[in-house]
Amino acid sequence: MSLSGLLWQLFAIVLALALAPLLTGWVNQCRAWLQNRSAPPLLQPYYMLHKLFLKDVVLAHGASPLFRFAPFAVFGCMLLACAIIPTLSTDLPFAPTADTIALVGVFGLARIFISLAAMDIGTAFGTLGGRREMLVGFLAEPALLMVIFTMAMIAQSTSVATIVETLAHREFVIYPSLAFAGIAFTFVSFAENARVPVDNPATHLELTMIHEAMILEYSGRHLALIEWAASLKLYAYSCLGLALFFPWGIAEGDSFLGLLISIPVLVAKLAIGGVLLAFIESINAKVRIFRAPEFLGTAFLFAVLGLLVRLLLENRV
């Protein structure tokens, strides 16, 4: 592990911190344009964070230490996830610390903390949101794992970096299983990031919200951290999707030039991804909460199909 590797890793983390709210702002802007509304400024999430960090924290009576600790835990988990996922290079010092299964575990840890914190205060909404979050999570996680197993079978490894290297630098081969896995991953990331078919990030309507219901009681810097963590989660999922399905442009090794090129490539890919996300969100309606299991069941099904197709079609030479 060289010093430059460490520096680049640090830079990747700072980049994630800086780019994540920008990505959220960009998606919001695209959504507004597509829905014929006047868009909020691109930097709106930063203003929001700035405002929230300046405000005082109001704690409910009977809030346990867990309630105060949870935002930091969630934020830490998301930051760790962003550091593990190869955003700029496959050869950064954090990459070998955790494989994709551990990555799913990190997301799960964050989910547990935020759900527990939501139930901690004892309001009806928090409990409701926490339960719904766990419902969505427990359906989304197996689908995500199946997607990862498909990738792992192709690359013969569960490490994200190895998967990316295998996919990006082999000769061009069409993997039909990747199409299935890609669809399943898209479904899962919509559900996990509280996007439209499962949850609407822009509403506070009590009957439909999941993510917003859980964080109703937070204020001040706690809320800022949670909002930032939500942005980081979107960033992490986008980067994971881009790394798994469009790995071209991610540098291998820590040559300065390769890493320098990978930054604009990443930004461009995220911008396109943001437009697509906003587009899909705009043409879909939010489904009833009882349809969410069906939505995620379909995702699981596609992921399993990808695995089966991988076994049947691609294993023999």
Binding site: R170, V173, P176, A179, I183
Partner: peptide
């Protein structure tokens, strides 16, 4: 996997799409 001809890959892809549909 590496020396599968492109045609077979394409056929496999289309077959997978048919299954998807």
């Amino acid at each position: 996997m590496t020396d599968v001809p492109l045609a077979t890959q394409l056929i496999n892809l289309f077959a997978a799409v048919i299954l998807l549909l």
